[in-house]
Design a protein around this nucleic acid. Structure first.
Lengths: 104, 104
DNA sequence: CTTATATGTGAACAGTTATTCAGTTATTGA
DNA sequence: TCAATAACTGAATAACTGTTCACATATAAG
């Protein structure tokens, strides 16, 4: 767990809107499961679709949103695209949420 | 920042659904601003309404959701009800999100 | 070139959600 | 008791969202 200089909790309207967008992006069971899978290993779109249990198209739509919020990154290899968490920051945020539901 | 034993990122469907509910609850600009205000000081419903810029009714609706997710707690004093963050856990989660939008 | 595979995209529909409005409950003070 | 204030609640509606479907693009193999 990295120890950054703590931010002041005072946020303006733009920051609040941006934060809401971030949390809303994480606020869907399918996307949570995608992030959980990527927290363990890099995955292709097809593998994510099988694991999460929705169509590859739906996964692709979700991944676009996750990419736009800089939560995941893509690596193209032949005709497959492998996704992984964008950085440790994302994992930390995810784990904080997990902590809350497990012993919050 | 408390250093808890890290959770395994492997989550089942129920946990994923619960996590999504948690993040979705934080995924609204008005609620983010409510949390941001409570991160600094305890506030009454009326004070939150003025600060966030929506009706007291809307604030009350939001606070119900935040209460149900154990993100805020209520303290009744006369005819006012003062709200505060439920615990440091919530503040940490909020600050992780803030970090992401500021330098993520 | 043709075929098969992996992924991305736009439209559309069903389900969800944030806000307002109107009304209710609870508490205080005159 | 009566009036005023603070907060809560349910219904209704406009706006948003997740998924599927049909199709498009891109890469690889034959």
């Amino acid at each position: 767990m990295a120890r950054d200089k703590p931010s002041s909790p005072a946020v303006n309207r733009d920051e609040a809107a941006h934060m809401a967008e971030l949390f809303r992006t994480l606020g869907d069971p399918s996307r949570v499961r995608i992030i959980a899978a990527l927290a363990e290993r890099e995955c292709s779109v097809g593998a994510l679709a099988k694991w999460v249990g929705i169509s590859e198209s739906a996964v692709s739509h979700h991944l676009r949103g996750l990419r736009q919020m800089r939560l995941v990154r893509a690596r193209k290899a032949g005709r497959q695209v492998f996704y992984s968490l964008d950085d440790d920051h994302v994992l930390e945020l995810f784990l904080k949420g997990l902590d809350h539901v497990r012993h919050g």
